[in-house]
Design a protein around this nucleic acid. Sequence first.
RNA 1: GGACGCUUAGCUCAGUUGGUAGAGCAUCUCGUUUACACCGAGAGGGUCAUAGGUUCGAGUCCUAUAGCGUCCACCA
Length: 888
Amino acid sequence: MAKKPIQYTEDTLPKAYEAGNFEESIYQSWEKAGAFKAKINKKKKPFTVIMPPPNATGTLHLGHAVMLALEDIMVRYHRMKGDSTLWIPGTDHAAIATQNKVEKLLAEKGITRHDLGRKKFIQEVEAFVKGSQSTIRNQVRKMGSSCDWSRETYTLDEGPSLAVRTVFKRMFDDGLIYRGNRIVNWCPRCQSTLADDEVKYKEVQSKFYYLKYGPFIIGTARPETKFLDKVAVVHPDDKRYKKYIGKTFDVPWINGTLQGTVIADKASDPEFGSGVMTITPAHSMVDFEIAQRHKFEIVKIIDEKGNLTDAAGKEFAGMNAKLAREKIIERLQEKGLVEKIDENYRHNLSVCYRCDTAIEPLTSTQWFINVDKKIPKRNKTIKQLSIEVVKNGKIEILPEKFEKIYTHWMGNLHDWCISRQIWFGHQIPVWYCDNCHGDPIVSIDTPAKCPKCKASELTQDPDVLDTWFSSGLWTFSTLGWPKKTADLEYFHPTSVLETGYDILFFWVARMIIMTTYALDEVPFNTVYLHGLVRTRNGEKMSKSKPETCIDPLDMISKYGADALRLSMVIGGGPGNDIRLYEEKIAGYRNFVNKIWNISRFILLNTTAEERATKFTKKLIKTTADKWILTRLQKVIKNSTKLIEEYSFSEAGTQIYDFLWSEMADWYIEFSKGEHKNSAVLLHVLRETLKLLHPFVPYITEALWEKTGSEGFIMEQSWPKYDATLVFTADSKKIEKIHMAIGDIRKMRGEYKIDPAKKLRAIMYGGALTSLLIEKKQAIMRLANLEEITIEKKGPKPEKSLSVISGGIESYLPLEQIFDLQKELERVKKEMEEHEKQLAGVNSRLQNKAFMANAKKEIVDQAKQDAAHHEEALAKLKEHKASLEKMAK
RNA sequence: GGACGCUUAGCUCAGUUGGUAGAGCAUCUCGUUUACACCGAGAGGGUCAUAGGUUCGAGUCCUAUAGCGUCCACCA
């Protein structure tokens, strides 16, 4: 760091704070000093946050920026509070997303992954990841994130990979992971399964066909799946069809005649269409479940490529299912089986959330996690465990409303399909024996030979795991599990998980599932969910509309990371979306600059010796000193409480208001006069910088150094509320002085007195007279007076403007001004205001019910208010009379 | 279809257990006084979405309605 100058001058301190000149070097010196490094200290409480790992190949967007800002606030606050604080950064391999990206790059060269083969393709992906990983790391640094880089983890690192295989093996042994032929969401483009929540819906318009099915009319949007619909389902209570239940009959159908059976099941909605539906178990989730309940045969009609199977009959087999639709309808029409076709059917089409391709539900042999099976020895399902920890408060979700949403989602969770037919990711730790084709071999390490036939020709399952499987282990796989590390023992469960509410199900729920299962421990105690960043008009920022997007990196270089952080944190709460626009960021840049200039004033007006002197109570001198110290205690108390409650916005706002409206607008103004007290100026500044540090780490660190303070501000202790620095009575006196100055300013403004004109004033201060005398210079300067007469009390000066508030009477002799009429108007207006207020208060005081029911403090306050207004009115009345007399 | 949230000054939002509405930006007027024009002083601007109810008293609690939004489920 730069050498501390003995005395600052206008030249050594620039007028404006240029974030770009400070941020990088400050971050480097923190990192170099090891200030982010967490240390285990059993005497201290741990505070642990794991960073939701950005995609290794991504770039920083506003979602990351909000996340980093909020997490850094929590982390810096706890570090200053003295907790052993750990924030682990990391990156995610993001299986499908990354593979798609690399495939796209290869496609530009006309290569497919199959041309390369698995091994070479993975090398290609890994090279790509290595190249772009450093980008996101540096961008995370730019935000000022104080995370422990020595513990950085990548989801494909050896540690997390071992954790993945270990959990897989254990779940398999516990019978929770199984391989089964079940219906899954299949993306024909990605050629892979998707989890239920990776499916999105898109409204489309299509044809809807009404077909004659034996004695019934059935409706469908997808006739190409209906070849083998042998079962018609009616609602058990539907009187129209009761007589058919259990009957079988011949149905003329696409390829000849089928034998149809009618069954009853509540899944059929009597209100919808004709109230009869046929089922296609292999290609509809609902139908699959009905078929399972009734143990019907499940035949695949469409294969993984989207083509019709042999089950469609010779004529149709091998055709693309969608293209075959018209042909099938033609066939049905020939047979007179088409009742009618609705051309304008609107419905939701399920599509892949990655590539927007229509999902084909189909049956396939995949790996699943059974969510409804009891865990051996624990006698509970993972679903039950996951619901329980939220219900009993071991995990608190903020905002609270998401607890309900979470519980509902978890309650309806189906078995989780975890295998993906892609190459990039954690390959499933299962091997098949090429010799005896026995049971799958599940193993943490690559097995040498088949345990059954001892053959060494083993083939590993080609599939990889859903990326959320490894993310689900993230709180403990980053800490070394399955090894019993000191980190794991000390830092787990983590304290807060902070992330966007859009990945509550994808990730947060998965972490709860996996951690309660594997560790019998919650992954975190609190979940803080932030909202989406939107444009000024509330639109989503989307990459497809670049004009709506704000690039956080642009904003950092333009306004500084501190300003960007504030603009995303202030005005937002948990779960609420944040509207962000450039003027807002500029506004907080102005505040950051204000911090700079407050400090600049103090630095220019103090000596190096003063800066080296420790603050003690003996150095308190004036009433104003006591006032600012009292206000400081209040803001320390409030902001601490608010941060503890996760109300970062309100905490930040209070510190902001304190510094700007109290410290700068009043205390510094007072300090320009005869009562400058360097010790208090410096003390309040230092304490406020500490309070601000979690929000705006860079400028506070820069100024900490300039004030000649020891060490880093990020390593200082969080300010403590000190009741001995609270001076309530003196504090109130100062506020009355503020009011009196405000009154004179208002009179000048309303009366349109030339602002440059210095006035003469008379003030009667009553009990505050001595303080008025003490602050005489300041009052003259702030109200722009050339002469002031201060008395305890006295007769109302003839021919003068007057205002009374807080027990101080202020008069501006009128010969300086000329417009009597205006002053009369103003006095009338002021009287009206007092009368209005008085009427309100009196109506309450005269209300017997109010007097009987309201709390004592409220009644007392009302009485005081009434007295105050009455007194003011009396004085104003007198003043008005004299004005009227003059006017005549 | 189910659940939830929002509606407060022109804009973005605060408003703590019910006590009579606030901030920032924008607008208007004025201003170079020991930091800051990325600033200072002052002003205007709200029947707190609507209609009922509880209460001495409702922006705040309850009910209904409207508009907007989000999530879940997807209907063959």
